[in-house]
């Protein structure tokens, strides 16, 4: 059984145990494999900014830490919530990079969690004229976007 299948099985077991009617669909995206849970019970995971989805993502990352390694990311999504939030975050990062370039003044984004910071850093890295850096020593950190010298 592939790792994606194992993780999908675990996620299915968790939502079944919770009594939620959700069906996982595997989606290969440019950002890696997404396990998208589809169904009308999705609201339980998505409400309050997707707290439940974040918790489930953490449990997957912890339970499969050894098998996942460093680069092999599998994202747990629900009714496309994560995908839409990620797209919003990328759009915001590009918008702020544009402001930094036109003004020359560094701008802050956040505080963001590690997953969100990774998206911002990868998005900023697409433009060779700007650079990004995380500031702080807690779980949530602020990302500073500035022009590259």
């Amino acid at each position: 059984m592939s790792l994606t299948e194992q993780i999908t099985g675990f996620v299915q077991n968790v939502v079944d145990a919770m009594g939620l009617t959700l069906t996982p669909r595997i989606e290969e995206t440019p950002d890696g494999t997404h396990i998208n849970l589809e169904g009308e019970d999705g609201g339980v995971l998505v409400r309050r900014g997707g707290e439940g989805l974040q918790a489930l993502q953490h449990l997957v990352a912890t339970a499969f830490r050894k098998q996942l390694g460093d680069d092999n990311r599998i994202v747990v999504d629900c009714n496309g919530f994560r995908r839409d939030k990620d797209a919003e975050l990328k759009q915001m990062a590009r918008f702020i990079a544009g402001k930094v370039l036109s003004s020359g003044i560094p701008q802050e984004m956040g505080p963001l969690n590690p997953y969100e910071r990774r998206i911002v850093h990868l998005t900023i890295a697409e433009d060779p004229k700007v650079t990004s850096e995380s500031i702080g020593d807690a779980f949530m950190k602020t990302v500073i976007i500035s022009t590259k010298n």
Partner: peptide, 23 residues
């Protein structure tokens, strides 16, 4: 392993319990 670094795994498990209870 249940508790995790800074209690993060326990917090995630409690979150799943809270959402299940709410449901």
């Amino acid at each position: 392993k249940i508790i995790g670094r800074q209690g993060r795994t326990a917090a995630a498990l409690r979150m799943m319990v809270a959402l299940t209870a709410e449901k």
